[in-house]
Design a protein around this nucleic acid. Structure first.
Length: 644
DNA sequence: ATGGGTCCT
DNA sequence: AGGACCC
């Protein structure tokens, strides 16, 4: 999906081997690149070595992908009306189309046959799309578009007497139509799986990847038909392909298998499992028991996972809320960047905080967001109103760069109330960021870092990840804060005491960082950071160093690494989308039609050819600046406004 | 591993 | 607050 989005921004990438880079790692690669031997998640070095022609794009900034993810989500939701649509990550959706299909089939009863086939009526897509998007024709005699499981069902239906249900056929055509909608209106290709539950839909959706869909027609009614088809499908698979079988679960199961099965078996197949062969679904079901699952994995979870081995899954499609539950931003640091003194830590936290506040304005403020992501009800007057108010802020730090730390190990987090004044859009963002550092973030960082004995000795912190999250998004505005959060005036009361405390903490860190040398001009004062501090804090720090602020010309950068440059390079740069970026194409969607009726997930990648009537039709005028723009580049143009 | 997310304990 | 899972 990332490659597909990049191709919408830069069509010259179409058809070429493209890799998306995040730090030293290849986050994903186009199918062309995969054909040349490049794997997802391999190191950059390995990728370049295996495929010298690989074109790399940096994908550390997710803004573009979030934007298309939102658009696809909104498009699918609007097409499906009240049907639940659940997002899984940025590029997969589950859809429970039970009600829609049921209504469709009910309507069919009192409709006479039509030469064009059957009309499937949809919810209105949205006001920018042609009216014929309120439904589509399909030919029920074509059975299901794309691949079908079991394979012979289309041809041998008459023999078997097993024919796909009318509902799964309708769902399959619906999936096909939605995929067409996403391609034609957004320019992203996709694959889909259609089945009677989430797990099976997701599973079959991954079977035929670029731009295909797969329908598993059998209903989990415990019939012999269902059992045999699903076992044939699932048994040979690595259990990791089932949702919920993650690394811990499989490790637990493997430990049990290698420990308890080996002593009393000579089965070569079992011996194999001890080394590296994957645990298959069939092996687990045949050699383990439900009771064992419950013992090993917990009562509830064990039951659920055990049922999954038979393709049984009752998980509902949970409608994803319009706004996420948390919004977070993070950066990772290697050995070169990740050895920081206290002021370095604060500097990185400030950069991240500023990025986070920018994102909150884009995603939570109505009137300030990228057009098309959420619709603005009255373009004439900009309301600029917060749609959600996070109430907590959390700082997470992962220390250490050693190879052998387990995934997610060493992460520590602390959270605090989010000060209400961050919502004041009249205050410049950088000031609000700095206030957040002062106000809870530096204290949270201290709580996490100053517990490390080692760091106290060296005055250096070994840091590999910093993450800042806002959580508990509320619809109702918080109580109005009593001011002074941003004020440089000293006021009486608790808030001024807190502030004062934090200031002195910053000053101390500086002194320690310079090996407690005499505070002087030549000592370890970080001028770059000093300039970043709000003037009142800066004065306090200087006072601790015994420096008269008037001796310094802080407006003149001591070196050319001015702070605003570094902020821009580290975080805002990639968000500045060129106004003349060309058009689009692409991604992966997984989506799903669920339970009593079909589910489908899907994923896929860009494709090259024609995506688009809509995309290439004509010229339109930008609502914001009046520029006349080709339709296909309007998204990028608007993103340009949003990012500036 | 990256830069995100969700839910459960 | 951390841990498991997902992309």
């Amino acid at each position: 999906m990332y490659v597909a989005c990049e191709r919408l921004r830069n069509p010259s990438l179409i058809g070429k081997p493209v890799g998306v880079q995040q730090k030293g790692l290849l986050a994903t690669a186009s199918y062309e690149a995969r054909a040349l031997g490049v794997d997802k998640l391999c190191s950059l070095r390995e990728a370049k070595q295996r495929c010298p022609s690989l074109i790399l794009v940096n994908g550390e900034d997710l803004t573009l992908y979030r934007y298309y993810s939102r658009r696809v989500f909104n498009l699918v939701r609007s097409a499906l009306g009240t049907s639940p649509v659940e997002k899984l990550g940025m590029d997969e959706l589950f859809c429970d189309v039970t009600d829609m299909v049921t209504e469709h089939l009910a309507e069919l009863k009192d409709t006479s046959p039509h030469p064009r086939g059957r009309w499937f009526s949809l919810a209105e897509v949205d006001r920018t799309t042609p009216s014929d998007n309120k439904g589509f024709w399909y030919d029920p005699s074509s059975v299901c578009p794309g691949y079908i499981i079991p394979e012979d069902i289309a041809t041998a239906a008459a023999d078997n007497g097993v024919t796909p249900s009318t509902e799964i056929i309708a769902a399959s055509h619906l999936a096909n139509h939605i995929r067409h909608l996403v391609l034609s209106q957004i320019g992203l290709g996709s694959s889909a799986g259609i089945a009677y539950n989430k797990t099976l839909a997701k599973l079959v959706g991954n079977l035929h990847k670029p731009h295909q869909q797969t329908t598993l027609t059998v209903h989990p009614g415990a019939t012999d038909e269902y059992i045999s088809v699903v076992r044939e499908l699932l048994d040979p698979l690595d259990a990791r392909k089932l949702m919920g079988f993650g690394s811990k679960v499989l490790h637990t199961l493997r430990d049990h298998v290698t420990g308890s099965v080996r002593p009393f078996t000579t089965d070569l197949a079992v011996e194999d499992r001890r080394s590296d062969t994957p645990l298959t679904v069939g092996f687990l079901r045949q050699h383990l028991t439900k009771q064992l699952f419950c013992t090993l994995l917990g009562m509830q979870n064990g039951q659920k996972l055990w049922d999954l081995l038979d393709g049984k899954d009752e998980e509902p499609v949970k409608p994803s809320p319009e706004f996420p539950l948390t919004i977070s931003i993070e950066d990772s640091f290697d050995e070169r960047r990740g050895i920081l003194d206290w002021s370095g830590v604060l500097r990185e936290i400030e950069i991240l905080t500023n990025s986070l506040l920018r994102r909150l304005e884009i995603e939570l403020v109505d009137g300030g967001e990228i057009e098309g992501v959420r619709t603005d009800p009255s373009p004439s007057q900009p309301p600029r109103k917060w749609q959600r108010y996070p109430s907590q802020i959390r700082l997470t730090i992962r220390g250490g760069h050693s190879r052998e730390i387990a995934y997610n190990a060493n992460r520590e987090s602390r959270s605090a109330a989010l000060p209400v004044p961050v919502f004041d859009l009249d205050v410049p963002r950088i000031e609000r960021s700095q206030a957040l550092i002062r106000q809870p973030l530096s204290a949270l960082a201290k709580q996490i870092l100053d517990k490390g004995v080692e760091s106290k000795i060296t005055e250096k912190y070994e840091i590999s990840i910093i993450n800042i999250a806002v959580t508990h998004l509320q619809i109702t505005p918080p109580e109005k804060a009593i001011n002074a959060y941003f004020s440089s005036e000293t006021i009486i009361g608790e808030s001024s005491m807190n502030t004062s405390h934090e200031r002195s903490a910053i000053g101390v860190a500086h002194i320690n960082g310079s090996k407690r040398a005499r505070p002087s001009h030549a000592s370890g004062l970080d001028f770059g950071m000093l300039r970043e501090l709000p003037p009142d804090i800066r004065e306090d720090v200087l006072r601790e160093y015994g420096i008269d602020a008037s001796e310094l010309d802080l407006e003149e950068p001591p070196n050319k690494q001015s702070k605003s440059n570094s902020v821009s390079a580290a975080n805002t740069g990639p968000e500045d989308i060129p106004a003349d970026s060309p058009s689009e194409r692409i991604p992966e969607i997984t989506w799903n039609l669920q339970n009593r009726t079909p589910v489908s997930p899907s994923t896929s990648d860009a494709e090259t050819s024609s995506s688009t009537e809509e995309i290439e039709t004509g010229v339109t005028e930008c609502e914001l600046c009046g520029a006349v723009i080709f339709g296909w580049s309007m998204d990028a143009h608007k993103a340009y406004h949003a990012g500036s």
